[in-house]
Nucleic acid binder design. Structure first.
Lengths: 225, 225
DNA sequence: GACCGCAGTCAACACCGTGTCGAGTCGAAT
DNA sequence: ATTCGACTCGACACGGTGTTGACTGCGGTC
């Protein structure tokens, strides 16, 4: 096969089948239509025909650009996870002001998910039925769990955080909490924390779970400054 | 209408349309088939025809008993939530041994969900597309959040737990964490805590988040025994 | 003991969304 | 001018859903 270059660089192209050329705008038109419709109604209520008509093409032509409706969503999700992963550098100078850095981390996630809530919500909905979405989401989560696990271990090593649960288990629990709480908050579904407060609530639980206090010690190893 | 009596007492009957009579076993046959098939493949891959044939009836006859495929799942979910709610009495003598009681609470939930994981997983999958499932689940969660919130406030009142986050927000965060962690563990999907450890991991986070320690003070107000 | 009504049953149908196939158009390169 | 491949769509086959209308058999009732 030709593994043609794609807008997203190295990725094995979730979108167009091959080649390059004019239809690039068609592809983005489909994506844009999907995002627009997603703001109006749930993913399940959007047919391929809707997407095609919205992009000014016929249904068979849609299949030239995407193998399925889900693939469109996957492409949209790729963008979001890319943006989320970009929040990675936060861990570097954690010890200088742990509280501020953890907050920054959570706040960035919140901003990313909140800024694309329609896409994220739609993904949560199809995660049940689509293995590919499930896989991609699991990957993203795994990266974040690993990063948080490493940060917790570092904080324990420098004496700022006490020992306790295996760092990985703790990281999984905290990330899971965030995911579910955000979902409820953005979906307005079931008991939810007010959107205004959600970052601070999550932060508090994180700090207490990791440090046993909401004011973790700053800089070098050991005690208070 | 006649609002005929149903097996589940007062509920506005999720199942059969009206009346009584012989077809009771057909109804349970459908339910049993659903549970059996759910153990084999995801809910979305089960058609109404599968359910009907499994119960020894034709597809139109299925509609005599249930208005839709989702209604079958809802009926199954009703049973599970009933069982989960039965774990309610745990809060009563909490102060006598907080750790043991919180553990009991979490363990009971774990047992209930684990014992019906196929149903619970299926519900999680259709929650995205079915408002009724979403509503019912939200109700259950809300009951639990309220109970936990009240317990936290009581522990704070007796001086066993320090002040901090609003009790409701904390209760939401902790319940959300549990839900998501269980989901991952039972579904084997994405980063998950080992099933053996999951109760203890969750318990640890709960205790630390509520008491700032994994060994909360026992009995009456104040200090160690 | 004919009749009614109703729980229970299903063949057949109408409908909708998906995915595919084959026949095309058109512009750039040869 | 022809060829090639990107691109397009009408028309179809398929599978699942939900409904209709006709049928069966049984308990009650005059």
């Amino acid at each position: 096969m030709t593994t043609a270059r794609t807008p997203t660089g190295a990725a094995p192209t979730r979108g167009r089948r091959a080649g390059r050329s004019t239809g690039d705008d068609r592809e983005t038109a489909i994506l844009a239509t999907a995002e627009r419709l997603l703001a109006q109604r749930p993913f399940a209520d959007i047919s391929i025909d809707d997407l095609a008509r919205g992009a000014g093409i016929s249904r068979p032509t849609f299949y030239f650009y995407f193998p399925s409706k889900d693939a469109v969503l996957l492409t949209l999700l790729d963008r979001v996870t890319e943006e989320a992963d970009a929040a990675g550098g936060v861990f570097e100078r954690l010890a200088e002001d742990p509280r501020a850095h953890w907050r920054e981390l959570i706040a960035r996630f919140h901003a990313t998910f909140g800024g694309h809530r329609d896409v994220v919500l739609a993904c949560a909905q199809v995660r049940g039925t689509n293995a590919e979405v499930r896989r991609l989401w699991a990957e993203v989560l795994e990266r974040w769990v690993r990063a948080v696990q490493a940060a917790i271990e570092a904080e324990r090593a420098r004496g700022a955080a006490p020992d306790g649960l295996p760092a990985r288990d703790l990281a999984i629990a905290l990330n899971s909490m965030n995911e579910r709480v955000w979902y409820a908050t953005f979906a307005g579904d079931g008991p939810a924390v007010a959107e205004r407060d959600v970052v601070d609530v999550l932060l508090d639980v994180w700090l207490i779970a990791i440090y046993r206090t909401t004011t973790p010690p700053v800089t070098a190893s050991g005690g208070t400054p």
